[in-house]
Design a protein around this nucleic acid. Structure first.
Lengths: 192, 192
DNA sequence: ACTGGACTTGAACACTTGTTCAAGTTAAAT
DNA sequence: ATTTAACTTGAACAAGTGTTCAAGTCCAGT
């Protein structure tokens, strides 16, 4: 496969993210990627194969995104805070927030194709691990109580993000969400 | 429409809940409901029409379920706690937990059919209102600080449930989830 | 110039999709 | 017994589905 897959994968990601796995039709992909069916099958094997690669690509980019935030922010906790805030307020607007592709896929394939489900779950696990990493750093820097459990905090943050993002679909009040984010992150501060 | 829709609607709910709107095919419904296409269309208008009725039915039953919990429990807070716990640990097992049909639909139709999306959101709003109701009762009974805002607590609980349920798909450790539920509900107790 | 392999094309295929409809059944009201 | 309206049936339809494949294009290595 010599085809420049980066651009194609990003376009495919956009489609799958918008419409889900089942909602995305091969014809949609053909139009969006400007590739004929044969090329897509030569390059990616099948719709499922393409989707799996899209997920890998998505996970890789998401992990990198967190690293980028971490380099820019003063502390790992700030990085996580900024990551979450920017994820929910895209261009400052709550309406632009979209459910994470992995979460969407997990929900869609709850009973569906086993390997798609497993693949999305594996991606989420990597995200959680990354959260855990940053919490570990934060503790080393004395930003958390010494007894704090980074692994548990990672799980907790993962859960909170899932809740925040899903709930943001159901909420028109920017203020409510802002308060919730504050509330989530204030629980990470060491007891004063 | 004289057809006994109760049984049919429940069976349809089961299918849509398992497979989602797009994932559920008319043939599946025909088999599960043991009805021929003409009958389904006479009774429900279309696949979308049936789905909308399924959602209404689901919301109604969910609201009633909370009322039932409220009658059985000592306090509204206990009722909510039991509701959440039983929702996540179905038959005591984390694996049996399924993403709420409304949440699943919101996620699936994020960009898709406008009215399906709106209908699911409306259902979620009713659930939130019910949570708010119970929190109001709890405050009247002195179980919450007088300054507590039941409306905000309702939103908060809605968000937390979404997070807990979605995260439970990604978690094999029953203990972790139990701790998270405790953590969520301990935040409702008045400051000691 | 020639070969060979990777990539592309677009028509075509077999199957599935949601939906329709003419014909048949039921059962209460006249 | 006749009418009427609601409901059921199941074959059929048109459109859409993921996928294939013979034929063509490209281009690096000989």
């Amino acid at each position: 496969m010599k085809y420049k897959p980066a651009d194609a994968l990003n376009k495919a990601t956009e489609l799958f993210w918008q419409k889900g796995f089942q909602g995305t039709k091969m014809r949609d992909l053909q139009d969006k990627l400007d590739m004929r069916p044969g090329s897509i099958y030569a390059g990616f094997g099948s719709k499922e194969g393409l989707f799996l690669q899209v997920i890998d690509c998505y996970v890789e980019q998401s992990l990198k995104k967190i690293d980028d935030y971490n380099e820019l922010a003063k502390t790992p906790l700030d990085a996580l805070y900024n990551f979450v805030t920017d994820y929910i307020f895209v261009d400052g607007k709550l309406e632009n927030c979209r459910v994470c592709l992995l979460v969407k896929t997990v929900s869609e394939t709850e009973t569906g194709p086993e390997h798609l489900h497993a693949h999305a779950l594996a991606g989420l696990e990597k995200m959680e691990q990354k959260f855990c990493e940053l919490f570990t750093q934060a503790r080393q820097q004395g930003l958390l109580k010494q007894e704090a459990n980074p692994e548990l905090l990672g799980k907790w943050l993962q859960m909170q993000i899932m809740g925040l993002v899903m709930y943001s679909k159901n909420c028109t009040n920017k203020n409510d969400i802002t308060m919730m984010i504050e509330s989530v992150f204030s629980s990470f501060q060491p007891h004063v």
